[in-house]
Design a protein around this nucleic acid. Structure first.
Length: 819
DNA sequence: ATACATACC
DNA sequence: TACTGGTATGTAT
């Protein structure tokens, strides 16, 4: 057993560290020699040790699996086999061979671009990347075992002459745009998988193509002139034939009219699939001087494998017949299939499965050893099935930014970096106008151990401050957990996910007037993921359970922002981040809030947001006509027929005064504030500490429960926590009445309503300013309809679209199958 | 919902 | 000296 385990370990180890010769261009090289160099270079490093550890984990998984396998009885297997057989016949019926799917992949993309632009590199082994990591290598370098995802310093050992060129992403993006333009001629709905790769559905194009005249299938070689322009570089650049490979099929001499690379020649392409794809590749080459490879098959899974078959600068068509597909699949190594990586390959290998035909033979066993998703997937593969349509480009689900660096152990530096990451992330979020509710912090220590810590807020955030407010806490927690040892980090990342849906996103950009739109007293934030606590039923009217959170949550967001801004101000220059660890909490509340976001606003870079028009003409939606005529008061929910914000503020003023007179009741609102409070409290479950800190001599009440409470917390309420009665308000302390501003969420220790109202006024104005600057933090759905009573509307209309039914049991899986 | 692992480019 | 960064998804709790 010892020996067995040892040898397995060795094998596994090699499999993780060793050369991955799965890809094209790696044939016939001295694997053993290469692997020895890789090992010798890696051994003893932290990375190596970490890989070893992971290897052992995989080993254990495999061992467990083998144990399970050993316990399977004949009977179980037999039963499983019947199930599998049934499923197979079901699946086979759904097999659709009518589509023509093409997978296109540029050859050694980044490297090819660099070679094109610097011909001296053509003859040399080169790679794009750095000493730390390579992203691509040219075919010359591959002969030495140098390949993508290999660190440059190891590559240098393998090939001392290797030239490493730093990446130039802007250039690659530009080229990518060029090829995508061509893709869209064949399939306007093509799906890009990366800068250099895409799936296309050629079916429709081919139908049309049959009736195309020759002229439409004729393409010109790029003229010498154009080439010169393209390579605006040195005049010495003379050789402009395809850079990578001489035997470019696109300049096949067998074709009449083909004039090689001299300007002005034309080439006519046929109407067949192969010709169409060849034409596409030809056009790519003429346009970019780069070559592409392609695979043609009845589904994406097969097309992908096919595109690798004749790489580089080649194409392969798999005929759309069952026989052809099955023959093709038979001896195909499972590792070639997209989705089966090192680990799965290993696990399958442990079961004696290396090819797709093995997969098919062992399905019964696999169904007993793997999860449903996994074995269904395996089965799909074994039958040669895959997606027969190109999925529409899906919504992004997360966005992140991470960085690797030399060991970072000082908390202050870690926080500072964290902030930087949040800023970067916020910038990216802004570009796409996204807001997400889940913030995830990723840490990798110097031993390559990775940790992630996440927190989900009840409302979406997007600004650096808001994100940092969360990430900072997560980081703080980890630092504290580890103390007195420092965290010795080599990487930190911040990710945001759980985005609000597009439906909410678009209107989110609208002006505050939209927010105050009739029938929609509150910004309506996304509902779907916000599990409203099921058990809150404190006498609330059923209609009230609309998760319309935004007002308060928005306020909370602001407050977070404020706090972050404050702490950042104090930590300016990172001079004292360590104190932040200790004092983070006490620092957070500074402003008593008479000027809640004064500098906050001033700091915002609204200069870019040209659309400062308060009345954004929501051209897209139909239901916005009234929005400029009436605003909804966030206090009483009544419509105020005016577009004049001053008038409107005066109204709110009076509402607030009125509300102040009846502490438990908001004028016009149909439910009880206290109930709301309790509910909020009930609902509160987050672990973020309740922070109650002295601020400028006054007690800041934070009613934390609400800040984390879900959207149920719907109404902008004037919280009048005159006494202990209000659980939420203040944990005791105040002797006099304390008012909580419904906008900035900070307490006002005053009983003078005039003063208080002036404060609220100010806050609202800030809010408006904020809106006008396009910095809105709320999301408003187009009013879909308001109830006649002018009360809140429960519009959940177009919501579900982005939300897919998560578990439809078998149906779902099957559906996935046939996808 | 969270954490971690696997996969792909 | 030196082993990425971005996104999605599966697995397990």
């Amino acid at each position: 057993m010892e020996n067995g385990a040892e040898s397995i370990k060795e094998g596994n180890f090699l499999s993780r560290m060793a050369l991955n010769d799965n890809k094209a261009g790696m044939e016939g090289l001295d694997r053993d020699k290469i692997n020895k160099i890789i090992m010798d270079t890696s051994k003893g490093s932290r990375f190596y040790e970490s890989e070893l550890k992971r290897e052992q984990q995989v080993n254990q998984r495999i061992e467990k699996m083998m144990l399970q396998k050993a316990q399977i009885t004949e009977q179980q297997l037999k039963k499983a086999q019947t199930q599998v057989d049934k499923m197979v016949s079901e699946l086979e019926k759904t097999c659709d061979l009518s589509r023509v799917i093409v997978h296109v992949d540029m050859d050694a993309f980044y490297a090819a671009v660099e070679m094109r632009d610097c011909p001296e590199l053509k003859e040399r082994p080169m790679a794009v990347g750095s000493m730390s990591m390579l992203s691509t290598s040219n075919y010359h370098a591959r002969k030495y075992g140098v390949r993508a995802a290999m660190p440059g310093f190891i590559a240098k050992k393998l090939c001392p002459d290797l030239v490493i060129v730093p990446p130039n992403f802007n250039k690659y993006r530009a080229v990518s745009d060029e090829i995508r333009e061509i893709f869209s001629d064949y399939d306007p709905h093509f799906q890009p998988m990366s800068l250099d790769e895409a799936y296309l559905d050629f079916t429709a194009h081919l139908e049309q193509r049959q009736s195309w005249p020759e002229s439409s299938r004729t393409h010109r070689y790029r003229s010498q002139n154009e080439k010169q322009t393209r390579l605006h570089q040195e005049a010495e650049v003379t050789d402009l034939s395809p850079v990578l490979f001489e035997d470019s099929p696109t300049s096949s001499p067998s074709l009449p009219g083909s004039g090689g690379s001299t300007g002005g020649a034309f080439e006519v392409f046929g109407t067949s699939v192969e010709e169409a794809v060849r034409e596409m590749r030809f056009r790519i080459e003429q346009k970019t001087t780069l070559t592409a490879s392609a695979g043609i098959a009845p589904n994406t899974m097969l097309a992908k494998v096919c595109s690798d078959k004749n790489k580089p600068n080649g194409q392969f068509r798999l005929l759309s017949t069952r026989g052809a597909v099955m023959d093709f699949i038979q001896d195909l190594p499972v590792r070639k299939i997209c989705g089966i990586g090192k680990v799965n390959e290993k696990m399958l290998k442990a079961l004696g499965i290396t090819t797709c035909s093995h997969l098919q033979q062992q399905m019964a066993l696999l169904s007993l050893l793997f999860s449903e998703t996994s074995w269904h997937y395996f089965m799909q593969i074994s039958l040669g099935l895959g997606s027969t349509h190109i999925p529409r480009h899906e919504e992004r689900k997360s966005m992140s930014t991470e960085r690797t660096f030399k060991e970072l152990s000082k908390p202050e530096e870690q926080f500072s970096l964290c902030r930087k990451l949040c800023e970067d992330l916020a910038e990216d979020l802004k570009k796409e106008g996204l807001k997400g509710k889940t913030v995830t912090l990723k840490l990798k220590n110097v031993n390559f151990e990775v940790k992630t810590r996440a927190q989900t807020l009840p409302y979406p955030v997007a600004t650096a401050e808001d994100v940092f407010a969360v990430a900072k806490d997560l980081l703080k927690m980890e630092i504290e957990n580890e103390s007195p040892q420092p965290l010795r980090l080599r990487l930190m990342g911040v990710r945001i996910s759980a985005f609000i849906s597009v439906d909410d996103k678009t209107p989110m950009q609208k002006s505050i007037l939209g927010f105050l739109q009739p029938g929609k007293p509150l910004g309506h934030l996304e509902v779907q993921n916000s599990q409203k606590p099921k058990e809150i039923s404190l006498g609330r009217r059923p209609t009230e359970e609309e998760p319309q959170q935004s007002f308060f949550q928005r306020a909370h967001a602001k407050r977070l922002q404020l706090m972050a801004a404050n702490s950042s101000r104090q930590d300016e220059g990172c001079r004292d981040e360590s104190s932040m660890v200790n004092l983070a909490l006490s620092k957070e509340d500074v402003e008593p809030s008479t000027q809640p976001r004064g500098d906050d606003c001033a700091d915002l870079d609204f200069s870019e947001n040209k659309s400062a028009s308060p009345v954004q003409p929501q051209a897209s939606t139909s239901s916005c006509r009234t929005q400029t005529e009436a605003l909804t008061c966030p206090v009483c929910f009544k419509q105020v027929r005016t577009a004049d914000l001053n008038v409107f503020n005066r109204h709110i003023d009076s509402c607030l005064s009125e509300a102040a007179g009846k502490p438990n009741r908001v004028s016009g609102a149909e439910f009880d504030l206290e109930t709301e409070h309790q509910k909020s409290k009930t609902v509160h479950k987050q672990s973020r500490e309740v922070e109650e800190l002295p601020v400028n001599g006054e007690e800041l009440s934070r009613s934390v429960p609400q800040e984390d409470s879900p959207k149920n917390n719907s109404v902008p309420k004037v919280l009048l926590s005159e006494h202990e009665q209000k659980p939420v308000t203040l944990q005791g302390h105040q002797s006099g009445p304390v008012l909580i501003c419904p906008v900035c969420y900070l307490t006002q220790e005053t009983d003078d309503l005039t003063i208080f109202n002036r404060h609220v006024d100010l806050c609202l104005n800030q809010e408006v300013l904020h809106e006008l600057r396009g910095q809105t933090t709320l999301s408003i759905k187009p009013s879909v309809g308001k109830n006649s009573k002018g009360k809140r509307v429960t519009d959940t209309p177009s919501f579900p679209p982005s939300k897919k039914p998560k578990s439809l049991g078998v149906c779902n899986t099957i559906d996935k199958f046939f996808r």
